[in-house]
Amino acid sequence: MTTTALAHHTSTGQDTRKIAFWTFIGSECMLFGTLIATYLSYEGKSVTGPTPQEILNIPVTSVSTFVLLMSSLAMVLALTAVVRGDKLQTRLWLTATVGFGTMFLAFQYYEFNSFVAEGLTISTNLFGSTFFVLTGCHGLHVLIGVIWLTTLLILSWRDQLGPEKAMNVEIAGLYWHFVDVVWIVIFTVVYLIQRGPVA
């Protein structure tokens, strides 16, 4: 990392990729912001059921939320392991991050399937449309993150993820934490604070 920093002078002293990536996260905020705002403005306006109150399973989703939060913790530990040059822990914590991410996706797969079985599809009502597009978009982000982190894991097994590659891991971590934070907002807004039908 130090050699790279020396080789490429930058105006701010920050890594250019990191700056670009923060900009990307800014645009992602607008993307999810628009989806969440749409969900909120349509909340309680469906003319047919099923409604969120009838169908959302808070206990199960609390578990999957916890799993995703743990993956963020594993991500932090993976990055520090890379910086230390600790190969064993790098592999351990990257595997944990990927594993927790995959578990979250499995939970979502189960949730979507059970909703469809209970009669809520993407075209059933406003709730179905807004819910599946919002959480589906988030799930797609998790999937991309899992693929990305798996790539890093493979690199680590090939001994190509030393401390000089820490910035690559840090940026993947930025993405992963962002996706996690977005889920906390979605979990709060969609699952925890449910508003009834608007009269």
């Binding site: 900009t23 800014g26 645009s27 992602e28 607008m30 993307l31 628009t34 989806l35 749409t38 349509y42 306006k45 469906s46 003319v47 047919t48 993407i122 075209s123 009502n125 406003l126 179905g128 449309s129 807004t130 597009v133």
Partner: peptide, 30 residues
């Protein structure tokens, strides 16, 4: 950076309405 994600989402809504029968702009569905 701030504006294009908004139109992206709007266009996704529109295409999903057309392709998968979502109800984003369907008055009948509320």
């Amino acid at each position: 950076v701030a504006a294009f994600p908004v139109i992206t989402v709007a266009l996704v809504f529109l295409m999903f309405d057309r392709m998968f029968g979502t109800t984003f702009f369907s008055v009948a569905a509320g």
